[in-house]
């Protein structure tokens, strides 16, 4: 196995984004850093704790777009203060499953969900459940940094404001705490009135993380949060994930297997099944295990092939 076993942080990496010390390609560089941090921090190299409280119990989840079944039979458990990664080839439904976890799929007219998504034992798709309340407690960070075209301050303050926080002093405190939490405060504290769009890509994504944690959610869903960022910005986000997982539960979709190996405690591997008659692709959950196991000794042969780069 080329990839180090579930090594966690890139904590030695404290360069700012503007520095240009890392210019080699991601893969060897990252392996290097991983080896270094293996000796210093071994946070997630341990097996994750199976007694950690459950946040999500997902059973036989299937998602349809119209009459097309995008995902079938996804069953997995997501635990508190862990980072759960969804990996798999394009079109395997990992983003679709992620968007079921805070009912973002509600906004796609044709989307329909079957099976159960229990969040602390409550069925998220119960008709009595208010989906806006769900999204307030389960925040989301997207593939492309998408700050509002407003000031940095207003970006972060927006969530608390619509949740009813009006006092300027309270908002100031929340904004500072969230920006510090997202490791952005030092870079922006003297220009909170500047537009969020004026930041660099990596800063924008950290602003989006600050915006998500400003409403103090329990879970943060991340949909390929680093796919549009350079390696340095990526390592800062990964570092940040390790820091905030003490307070939040994180689910991350990633195309990048090394990223899953570096940051996550557990990994769900999805593949695409092609129906020969209709030529339609349905995502299937193949294996859900501790990340260490997925990358060293997976149960399923297809997982092994994928993580060793032989298919997908």
């Amino acid at each position: 196995m080329a990839i180090a076993n579930g090594v966690s942080t890139v904590a030695d990496h404290t360069d700012t984004e503007s520095s240009s010390t890392v210019s080699t390609t991601t893969r060897p560089e990252v392996r290097n850093v991983s080896e270094v941090s293996l000796s210093t921090t071994a946070q997630t190299a341990d097996s994750p704790d199976d007694s950690a409280p459950t946040v999500y119990d997902i059973e036989d989840l299937g998602v349809y777009y119209g009459d097309f079944k995008a995902v079938r039979d996804a069953t997995l458990t997501i635990r508190q203060h862990e980072i759960t990664a969804f990996i798999g080839p394009s079109g395997c439904g990992k983003t679709t499953v992620l968007r079921c976890l805070n009912r973002m799929n509600d906004f796609i007219d044709t989307a329909r969900v079957e099976g159960t998504v229990l969040y602390h034992g409550v069925d998220l798709y119960d008709p009595k459940v208010n989906s806006t309340e769900v999204r307030r407690r389960i925040g989301m960070v997207f593939q492309k940094p998408n700050p509002f075209p407003k000031s940095i301050y207003d970006n972060v303050a927006y969530g608390p404001r619509i949740a009813g926080m009006k006092k300027k002093s309270e908002l100031d405190g929340v904004v500072e705490k969230a920006l510090r939490g997202a490791a952005l405060w030092d870079e922006v504290h003297n220009r909170l009135d500047a537009s969020g769009m004026s930041l660099s890509g990596g800063q924008q994504q950290r602003l989006c993380i600050a915006r998500a944690i400003a409403v103090d959610p329990e879970v943060i869903l991340m949909d390929e949060p680093c796919s549009s960022l350079d390696p340095i910005a990526t390592s800062r986000i990964e570092e940040l994930m390790q820091e905030i997982k003490r307070e939040y539960t994180i689910v991350i979709v990633t195309h990048n297997m090394q990223q899953a190996a570096r940051v996550s405690d557990r990994t769900a591997f999805f593949i695409t099944e092609i129906n020969k008659e209709s030529d339609r692709r349905t995502g299937v959950l193949v294996e859900f295990n501790p990340t260490e196991k997925i990358f060293s000794n997976p149960d399923d042969e297809r997982t092994e092939q994928y993580v060793t780069g032989r298919f997908g």
């Binding site: 805070n102 973002m104 906004f107 806006t132 309340e133 999204r135 307030r136 407690r137 925040g139 989301m140 960070v141 997207f142 492309k144 998408n146 700050p147 509002f148 075209p149 927006y158 969530g159 619509i162 949740a163 989006c208 915006r211 998500a212 400003a214 409403v215």
Partner: peptide, 22 residues
Amino acid sequence: PQGIRDAGYGVGASRWETIRDH
């Protein structure tokens, strides 16, 4: 861009709040 709407929904804004504010 759809990202603007997603961002609003993602922090718990309702559909109307997202339209009105973003």
